[in-house]
């Protein structure tokens, strides 16, 4: 089995008819959205006080799991805190057999991992008005004083649940959403972003 298998991420139909909305074709829109539909996602469950578990994860991913609520760690992969015993490990691209190796690594512990790679997609937001857009649908205060690089929150955006990850300086945010809610969220962004100017890649 290889990555040569025919994959379709869930926003391909959306991408086909999306364009820049709300600002002139020449001007750079105040919000830019790119879809990343082929990352790998592992849902990880375990006791953070269990050294066997945390060591196993660290030796595999090369980084510690974040134990502080609503934070993430990132290097080769991004590990988002989802709950006191739950994390989402996100690898930037697919690699055959990686999950099986990861899973095996955890075999000797009480921790478990589930491959949910096909269940999520990432909408990468950037631009001056990216936070303004999120503020239209999210009740959380994403101001610098409370949301910084290394933070991630699970919350609602408009009418869907999503994870907002802050992994780079400047106006860059990753919105991780379940596959079947992604089109709704993208359409919502197209509507809600129009007043600022929004472009999709």
């Amino acid at each position: 089995m290889s990555d040569s298998l025919k994959r379709h991420h869930c926003l391909e139909p959306f991408s086909e008819d999306s364009a820049t909305i709300g600002s002139s074709a020449s001007a750079e829109p105040a919000i830019r959205v790119t879809f990343d539909g082929h990352r790998e996602f592992y849902n990880l469950r375990g006791d953070p006080a269990d050294a066997a578990f945390t060591d196993a994860v660290k030796s595999f991913t090369g980084q510690s799991i974040p134990d502080k609520a609503n934070t993430l760690s990132y290097r080769e992969c991004t590990t988002c805190w989802l709950g006191p015993d739950e994390w989402l490990v996100v690898y930037p691209s697919f690699e055959a057999g990686r999950f099986e190796k990861f899973s095996t690594e955890l075999d000797s512990t009480d921790a478990t991992a589930v491959d949910v790679s096909h269940g999520y997609i990432v909408l990468c937001l950037s631009g001056d008005s990216a936070l303004d857009l999120l503020a239209k649908g999210c009740t959380l205060d994403l101001h610098l004083s409370s949301f910084n690089v290394g933070d991630c929150v699970q919350t609602g955006i408009a009418r869907t649940a999503a994870i907002i990850a802050n992994i780079a300086e400047g106006d860059h945010y990753e919105v991780i959403v379940r596959r079947t809610f992604a089109e709704y969220l993208a359409i919502w962004m197209r509507h809600a972003g129009a007043e600022f100017g929004i472009g999709f890649d």
Partner: peptide, 18 residues
């Protein structure tokens, strides 16, 4: 607000919807 028409509520589609 924006919660009208096609974004009144999320519409979930399967991978074979198209």
């Amino acid at each position: 607000g924006e919660d009208i028409g096609e974004i009144y509520d999320p519409v979930r589609k399967t991978a074979m919807h198209e």
